[in-house]
Design a protein around this nucleic acid. Sequence first.
DNA 1: CGTCCTGTAGAAAGCGCTTACTAACCGCGC
DNA 2: GCGCGGTTAGTAAGCGCTTTCTACAGGACG
Lengths: 381, 381
Amino acid sequence: MSVTLADVAARAGVSAATVSRVLNGNYPVAGSTRSRVLRAVDELEYVVNGPASALAAATSDLVGVLVNDIADPFFGVMASAIQSQIGPAGDHDAEAPHGQKMAIICNTGGSPERELTYLTLLLRQRAAAVVLTGGTVEDPDHLGALATRLRRLEAGGTRVVLCGRQPLTAATDGAAPGGAHGPVPGPEEDPGPAPVALTFDNFGGARRLTGHLLDLGHRRIGYLAGPAARTTTRQRLDGHRAALAAAGAAGGEAGTPEAERLTVHGGYDRASGYDGALELLRREPGLTAVVAANDTVALGACAALRERALRIPEDISVAGFDDLPFAIDAAPALTTVRIPLHEAGARAGRLALGREEAPAGRTATLPADLMVRASTAPPRP
Amino acid sequence: MSVTLADVAARAGVSAATVSRVLNGNYPVAGSTRSRVLRAVDELEYVVNGPASALAAATSDLVGVLVNDIADPFFGVMASAIQSQIGPAGDHDAEAPHGQKMAIICNTGGSPERELTYLTLLLRQRAAAVVLTGGTVEDPDHLGALATRLRRLEAGGTRVVLCGRQPLTAATDGAAPGGAHGPVPGPEEDPGPAPVALTFDNFGGARRLTGHLLDLGHRRIGYLAGPAARTTTRQRLDGHRAALAAAGAAGGEAGTPEAERLTVHGGYDRASGYDGALELLRREPGLTAVVAANDTVALGACAALRERALRIPEDISVAGFDDLPFAIDAAPALTTVRIPLHEAGARAGRLALGREEAPAGRTATLPADLMVRASTAPPRP
DNA sequence: CGTCCTGTAGAAAGCGCTTACTAACCGCGC
DNA sequence: GCGCGGTTAGTAAGCGCTTTCTACAGGACG
């Protein structure tokens, strides 16, 4: 510590400016000078003072990544992919090049307030970019506050990328399958260009998944939804109901008692699946299938059903969503919908760094493919 | 952006110094002045310039967290717990208090080089603290470089905490069950105080786990080890062999052909478990139990065994390690060893912030409790 | 009534770096 | 021999904040 640019300069017999230029490589420096400086840097084990250079250059090497829950592999996988694009690349060299970015992963716990707090903190750090992952609360107040923060970030030169989330207010648009909306202005104020967004086809995936169950012959299908008023939850639920409605099956029409009865809202955790499955069974003992908001919930549901001595899939089918790594290893292997988390994260990371062109319309929707495995089968006659 | 302290000062009719003092609350300011300043801050939507204040105050709000693989719940859970102590607390308020810390989660991918790179980057940022999670490579060169980096960090005022890792060179000490070593000086140079460390009782947990299988009557037990030359891998393997040796069972003596034959090294991922189980079966068709380096590997092994038409636990027992959330939902529920990841992370976070006293001897070993579930049973006669 | 605290606020000197702007030097053509 | 572009290096002015030191009230006190 306390070895400064000036020390290096003195040792190399040049001015501080020259050292800075060698290190940043953004100005012609004679070869001999350059190597003299580099040697001094090495001998003194000089490490730049990040804050100082961020202040002087008015840019920082920090990239913020907001996630709901880093302990959840859904976010873990995305975060890992994002970081793989941002952090140090190969392992060939322990030296950290100048201008090397670092990701700050912020755990919001799904709390809108904390999300805003983190955005303020990132603004304070003058982050180079911010990636918001996963769905969000559909509360207009929150969305408004969010839009304001993001606008301020962008005004300050921070690149904003949404990964797995609708472009802001478009989130309240109902369940549009395609998802490719244009920018929608927030309340008052100039919206500026909408942040670039990568969204998942939750609606389409859910519709195909429930369609698969309907094709197998299921008609009494329970749904374990995630927390209410969140975009991801609603898109998946809407897809599910759209499939039911198209087949004229029970629960297809939102708001009807039938639909309410076959839907239980909970969290995205295992316990919600466990409790929710029991509740569904209580409400509708004749259930032949359960669709969960995600794989974790599905696993919890499986546990509950097994305790009730129901065999999967002989007595009851179960399906998840996301295709997290453990889905294929469940017994029986879980039928689910694959979300390209890794691809999405990697692409978001590149977009955040400006290393990839923004998609046309500033929004791209990634596919959600049905993965049929062993946890779903035709209902018993 | 571009609203500076001076702007706020002008608006409030005070000097910049006063505004700084109000914001930092570390100097007496008259109530009336204080509220005038706060109003100005509010009206101007002023946000401190983090780099500038870090430079002037020579401290930063950044805390580095190094993990091997953030997509792995083992690290995800710890990272989440660490952050819960460091990041914004309640959701009562969207305002970010001054001095609010942020965690930078760095994904090393298990690469020693990348670990060093990140440490340099953190040094550059003048991080307030650094938490290194999980085991490490046992290569003396790497350990030396690591010790040097950590010493430099500590010299610069960065607090260093190890979470789930032996205090540096103690890592090469053989499999000491207690783990409470004193500081061991690195090669040359003054060691200074060893970083505070929270370690897991991998050895003891593994020994109890294998002991459980032996008690059930198993004698031909295969072991799916993690990557060679990593502390966690070796401690668990050593514990396993210690239990075997104590019972006089096959494979208890390291280095013997028997021990080698019953051990397969791989990664900590699902595929390694799958491949490894098949390999074990090939080497020893009479296997009655498989112990895996962690739960993820165990799940992969289960998949492979099931494909070979072996029933768990009737035909073959399987055990994991860590007790990750999904272990209890495996079918059958996985017998494993519970590692208090959340508690460890939370405590490490508090230690990093200096909000908790370092344990006596600067090292505390956390218990690893055996969780007997349904995937283990007596072998068939 | 002058002095000495105590409580508040301002002036100003950096923190370590970047980056115009300026200066020196070189070889060149006229 | 002199002025001139082209290189390469140095000078110095900040970047926006913290913090020491100084200044100035207004009581309390002798």
